[in-house]
Amino acid sequence: MTHRMHTDTHTPYLDGGRSWRDAAGRYALLPLRVFLGVTFIYAGLDKLTDSAFMKDAGSGSVGDMMRAVRDSSAIPAMVDMALENPVAFGYAIAIGEVAVGIGTLVGLLARAAALGGALISLSLWLTVSWASDPYYYGNDLAYLMAWLPLLLAGAPMFSLDAALRARRRRVGGYR
């Protein structure tokens, strides 16, 4: 005699007999991936195309922004390092944001992309938005927290990582 768990026959099943809750759990990180991917791509491209931002000094420049937050940051030495070459720092952040955004959106090296996003958000929180009072007015801490589930879970669905894993299993005969 086989033992079968009782299932509600009115529960919709998706994905080979799993309940809708199981399927929803598998897809739960997709909205976060799309939001963070698009946002970081946009943020990076916005910086790269803003002629005022990529300057050592002047209204809206990365240099003036870093000088303005230096004394209120959690780690002024981080800001001092950025101020050694503010334009290079601006390019590093912008290119990093684009790379993280693309990796997150397409799910390629998703955990590495999430780590990059978390590190960018952490560095911006400790410098630019550290003085936000109350703390929840600063968005960098919220972005840091948003990256953590993706860092832990990766991109198991609709991702190049998942496609590559499936291909390796097929080619290698693994299940």
Rank of each mutant, 00 (worst) to 15 (best):
L124V: 12
V34I: 15
H10S: 09
R167H: 10
Y143P: 12
N139G: 14
Y13K: 15
M157V: 13
D133S: 15
S72G: 12
V62W: 11
L30I: 13
I95Q: 00
T7V: 11
D133V: 14
Y13F: 15
A131P: 08
L108W: 14
F89C: 14
Y27N: 00
A155I: 00
M78G: 03
A82L: 14
V34W: 13
N85V: 13
H10Q: 05
R18N: 11
L109D: 00
V38I: 12
D140S: 15
M81F: 13
D46N: 11
A112W: 09
T9D: 14
G17C: 02
D46F: 13
W130Q: 03
G63E: 08
G16C: 05
L124Y: 09
G16H: 11
L105Y: 09
G116T: 02
I75P: 01
P12D: 07
V171C: 02
G37S: 03
R170C: 03
A131N: 12
V62R: 07
I120A: 02
D8C: 11
Y42F: 14
A162N: 02
W130C: 04
R175W: 10
A163I: 08
L105W: 11
V171I: 14
V34D: 07
V69S: 09
A43E: 04
A77P: 00
G58T: 05
R18P: 00
W147L: 00
A142W: 10
I41A: 01
L160T: 10
V62Y: 13
G172T: 10
R18M: 10
P76Y: 08
F40E: 05
M66G: 06
R70Y: 08
L119I: 10
R165L: 01
M54H: 08
G25P: 06
G138L: 14
V38Y: 12
M78S: 01
A74R: 03
S121P: 05
L14V: 15
T49K: 05
Y42L: 11
G37P: 06
F158C: 03
L126I: 01
S61E: 10
F40V: 06
G116Q: 01
F89R: 01
R111D: 00
E97G: 06
I95P: 02
P86G: 09
V171K: 05
W125E: 04
P12E: 06
A24Q: 02
S159W: 04
T127N: 04
L144V: 12
S59K: 15
Y91T: 04
S129F: 13
L105C: 05
I120G: 02
V171E: 12
